Computed example of a mutant assay.
Amino acid sequence: MSAASAIVDAYIGAHLIAEDAALAAALDHNAAEGLPPIDVSAAQGKMLQLYARMVGARRILEVGTLGGYSTIWLGRALPEDGQLVTLELEPHYAAVARANLARAGLDERCEVRVGPAVHSLGAMVAADEAPFDLVFIDADKPSNVAYLQAALMLTRPGSLIVVDNVVRDGRILDTASTDPSVLGTQALFDAVSKEPRLDATAIQTVGAKGWDGFLLARVLA
Rank of each mutant, 00 (worst) to 15 (best):
G13P: 01
H15E: 04
H15R: 13
L16G: 06
L16Q: 11
E19D: 14
A21T: 14
A21M: 04
A26V: 05
D28K: 15
D28Q: 13
H29T: 15
N30P: 01
A31L: 04
A31Y: 01
G34R: 12
I38E: 04
I38K: 13
V40D: 04
S41P: 06
Q44C: 04
G45E: 03
L48H: 10
L48W: 05
Q49F: 02
M54D: 01
R59E: 00
R59G: 02
I60S: 02
L61A: 00
E62K: 04
G68E: 00
W73T: 10
G75H: 00
G75A: 07
G75C: 02
R76Q: 03
L78Q: 09
P79N: 09
E80V: 14
G82L: 06
V85R: 13
L87M: 00
E88K: 12
L89A: 12
P91L: 02
H92V: 10
A94K: 10
A95T: 14
A97Y: 05
A97K: 11
R98E: 12
R98I: 05
R98Y: 05
A102S: 12
R103Q: 14
R103W: 05
G105N: 09
G105R: 10
L106S: 05
C110Q: 08
C110N: 04
G115C: 07
G115N: 04
P116T: 13
A117H: 09
A123Y: 04
